[in-house]
Each structure stands twice: as C-alpha cells, then as structure tokens.
Design a protein around this nucleic acid. Structure first.
Length: 464
RNA sequence: GUCCGAGUAGUUCAGUUGGUUAGAACGCCUGACUGUGGCUCAGGAGGUCGUGGGUUCAAAUCCCAUCUCGGACCCCA
C-alpha cells in the first residue's frame, strides 16, 4: 500500500524553528507592550457553540465559519471554530457580570476562516490574532489608548519609515452614517454604501464614483461624496492636512447632520487624548471614508496599512462595539479594541527583509566528544553551560569531529566546545576547547570560563 | 463565490516540430582531511515527468478529465 504524500491542509502552515524564533521574539515584545498599558492575558477555547458565533460577522463573514460536522445534528449543540477573538470575549464578559469594569485583556491565539488563502497577501485559513480590548469604558480615553498602543507596537517592530511605514487610519461609524444620508442614499443600506467607499484605496476615486452611480446615487450626491473623498488622505494635496483641520472641513460640509457631528466630536476627543498620551499624531490619518466590514462596530473604527505594500491587507483593525456584549443578555457594555494580525505582519516583514532567519536553533554551544571516553565529561560540561543560562547541547555521537562542526555550521550555532583527552584530563579541572565559528578562533579554557565567555557575547545583530 | 496561470529530483528550473537510458544548479551523503565547519576538488544517492484516461509505431511534450498549487478579484487579519 503506497502511503499518501503527507501535506498540510490548504491555508495552514508549519512554523519551522527558523520562523518560530523571530516569531516568538515578536510576540514577547508585543506582550510586554500590552502589559505596560495594563492589559492582562486571557485565553478562550478554539471551539465555540455555533449559536454564539452566528449573526455577528455579517453575511460575508458568516460564510467563512468552519462549522464542525460531527455526530450531533441538533442545531443547539452544534460547534464551530472561532472566527475571531472579539466575539469570544463578548461571551466571556456576558457570563461574568460580577467582574469589575473596566476590564482590559490581551489574547494571542489562532482563529480560523474558510476563505481562499493567498500567501503573498498574508491571508490564511488558520492565523494568529493578537487582540487587545477594553470593556466597560466610554468613548474617549480607552479608544485613544488602543491607538497609542498600536502606534507604539508598529514602531517597535520597525514599521516606521520609508516603504516600511505603516499608517493608522481613523474614522467613526456615525460620520459614515452622516455621509450616507448626505449623499441621498437610504440609511438601511449603510453597509452597502460603506463597502463602496472602503474600496477607495483599491479602485481609486473614479472607481468609487462609478460604483456609486451604479448604486443609483444622483449627480448632486456624487458631488457631495466626492468632496469628502478628497479628504480621505489616500491621495492628493490634503493627505498631509492635520486631522483637526480635516475635521473642520468635514464638519462644515455635514454641519446639520446630528450623527456626523457626534462622530466628529468623538474623533476630536480621541485625538486630544492621543496628544496627551504623547502619540505622534502624524501617524494617525483621519479618513472620513474608512469603513471596515464587520457589522458590530458602532463608534470609532480604525485600521493600519502599509501604503508601500498595497497587496498586503490591513495589519491591524478594530473599533468600538457598544452593542455586541448586550446581545448575550445582561445589558449593553461599551467596549473598544483592536486586532493585531501577527501573520500578516510577519508576512510583510518577511517580504521587506525585516526578519532574521539565520538561526535554525536556539542552541549557542554544541559540545562534542573526541571519543566515547569523554562522553561523561561532556555531560558534566553541558550542565555548567546550562547552569550559567547558556542554551547548550551535547552532540550524541563520537567519531570524526567534522560531523559536529558541520552540524553547528548548518544550524548557525555560534560555538563548538570540544572535549578530548587533553581537556578532560587537565590537572586544573575540566577544560574545553571553545571555537568561535564565525571568527574561526579557538582557545582552551576552564568550562566555567567558557560558559562565562559565551553568555557575555550577544548574538550578532541581523545583517540588514 | 468569480476570473486567469502552472504542475518534471529535497528546492529552483531546462527539456527543440512528439523520437535512444529525462538533464543542470543548489541542497543532501561519502571521501581528499585517523582533534575542527565554511572554500576547493573527486565521487554518490535521489524522478511512475501531479493523477486517470485518450491519440500514436512512439507522449514529459498533443487532447480530455480530475486533483493540487500559484496569481488577480470579493472580503478580511
């Protein structure tokens, strides 16, 4: 019987050590920032009751749910893989009404979506999201903190300058509602209207205008929307206009629309808090036509993209969802948060050459015995390295030293420590011959001194 | 869900109007090197040409089907 070729499910990947090492580094640095802002860790199950997930993501999102087809046909007991981390959070909050508010959590776990994967665009069927949310705080500071954290995070990871510069875009659902009414489009189809506006960066101003005409919006409405498209910041002279000034522009255009006015005031207060938090406001672009797809947003919406890498979708995305938690009973609780797309950021970093994939192992010293007689000396030595905090391992076979050296070279292990009769039998105690593979230099010294030397030299910085 | 393109060694690919035993580079293994990697040199292993059918004296090559992968939409992280 021929065994079938092993392969992984489409849209899922294995992460090799070469990828996991930089990946864990990124996650660690993100978690550190989350904690600095007062967010605490939370995890939820991969499986959710189907009824918890349905009706939250809109028609498009719903199609992407992985529903589990197992023996139970009873709808009430059916199960699906989680689609995001926001809805599970809402469920957790709704089932713990006694928790003190505000509640701030971060969560780093995979989610699953049944759409067509496209690697270059950083889209997969299984991918990691890093969510931060604040529940139980009104619009303002909480929203600003999420944005401040997002900017800090992106800068930390290197998405700061030139073609690597990420831009955070900010808008408010109520502004969109105002624009929809102003264009003369029925409010019931706000979602459809938003979808067209949202395509601005992909199909351009002419594309949006022609789509709006197809929707049945008249000439006057088109002119009105067009005057706002110019303020998107996606192109043209107004792209560098300060947000305050743009808010005034939009306010002047939509001044007798109550929803828009409220939305603009919301944006203004978020920007004020951001300023006081010390965030560089030039990283934030107020874009009155930014829409975003998910149905549950009610207030501010935001996302960050790489204008230099348009094929990669948004790196982060989030917003305020004041009505979602109330759907599970117990009354509404306001909430705001963002998702940081780890895999998409990683894909972008790989394509931009920002990832160091040199190291295939975490081991820093490989210990090799000249002959079987020195094996026990090797075990003694590896213990010394480990106690000094140096990741070390013993090459398991003896024979030609070419093998352990070649192995170390292939995995980019920086040091090899050889123990032969001379080192093991040194009257001053156990010695090793420590070779620095990148320099090609070697010296024989006490094990403890070798461990000291290795732990004091940092791994060389990644070449750019 | 819609529209394109591609499947040949572990990887990236070449392979003429259909014609002997299907090639290269890199990688891998062995040796030159019985206390030492990278560089060099010599040798070696590795392929049912995605799968199934058809045309033909003859198919990696032409035709059909199918599967898989990649890209562009839609949507999103």
């Amino acid at each position: 019987m021929a065994s079938p070729k092993p392969r992984s499910f489409k849209g899922t990947r294995d992460f090799t050590p070469r990828e996991m090492i930089p990946r864990e580094k990124i996650i660690d640095s993100m978690k550190r920032v989350f904690r600095l802002y007062g967010f605490s860790p939370l995890e939820t199950p991969a499986l959710e009751m189907l009824s918890v997930l349905t009706g939250k993501y809109g028609e498009e999102g719903e199609k992407l749910l992985y529903k589990l087809d197992y023996k139970n046909d009873d709808f009430m007991n059916r199960v699906a893989l989680r689609y995001d981390l926001t809805v599970p959070l809402a469920r957790v909050i709704a089932s713990h009404p006694e928790w003190p508010m505000p509640f701030k959590r971060y969560q780093v776990q995979p989610v699953w979506r049944a759409d067509k994967p496209q690697t270059r665009q950083g889209r997969f069927r299984e991918f990691y999201q890093c969510d931060i949310d604040t529940v139980g705080a009104p619009e303002g500071l909480a929203d600003a903190e999420i944005l401040a954290l997002t900017v800090t995070m992106l800068d930390d990871l290197g998405f700061k300058d030139g073609d690597k510069r990420a831009i955070v875009q900010l808008n408010h659902r109520k502004v969109l509602e105002g624009i929809c009414v102003y264009a003369g489009h029925p409010r019931e189809d706000l979602a459809g209207f938003c979808r067209v506006l949202d395509k601005l960066d992909k199909i351009g101003r002419e594309g949006v205008v022609s789509d709006l005409i197809d929707m049945g919006i008249n000439d006057e409405g088109i002119d009105r929307v067009d005057s706002l498209l110019k303020l998107s910041g996606m192109y043209g002279s107004l792209s560098s206009t300060p947000a305050d000034e743009k808010i005034d522009h939009v306010l002047a255009i939509l001044d007798n629309n109550q929803a828009a006015t409220e939305g603009l005031e919301g944006i203004r207060s978020i920007l004020q808090s951001l300023k006081e938090l010390g965030t560089d406001l030039s990283r934030i672009n107020f874009n009155p036509v930014l829409a975003r797809g998910l149905d549950y947003y009610t207030g501010a919406v935001f996302e960050s993209t790489l204008p230099g890498q348009p094929h990669i979708g948004s790196l982060t995305g989030g917003g305020r969802y004041d009505k979602l938690i109330g759907l599970y009973g117990g009354g509404d609780k306001p909430a705001v948060g963002t998702t940081i797309g780890l895999d998409r950021m990683f894909a972008a970093m790989e394509q931009l050459g920002m990832v160091d994939t040199e190291a295939a192992t975490v081991t820093r010293v490989l210990i090799a015995a000249w002959s079987a007689d020195q094996m026990s000396a090797c075990l003694q030595a590896v213990r010394v390295f480990r106690e000094a905090g140096v990741p070390a391992e013993v090459f398991p076979t003896t024979g030609k030293l070419k093998k352990p050296f070649s192995h170390a070279d292939k995995l980019n292990i920086p040091y090899v420590a050889v123990i032969g009769p001379d080192e093991a039998g040194n009257p001053d105690g156990l010695h090793v011959s420590l070779k620095d593979l990148s320099q090609g230099t070697q010296e024989t010294l006490q094990v403890a001194n070798a461990a000291e030397k290795v732990s004091s030299t940092n791994r060389s910085a990644p070449s750019s």
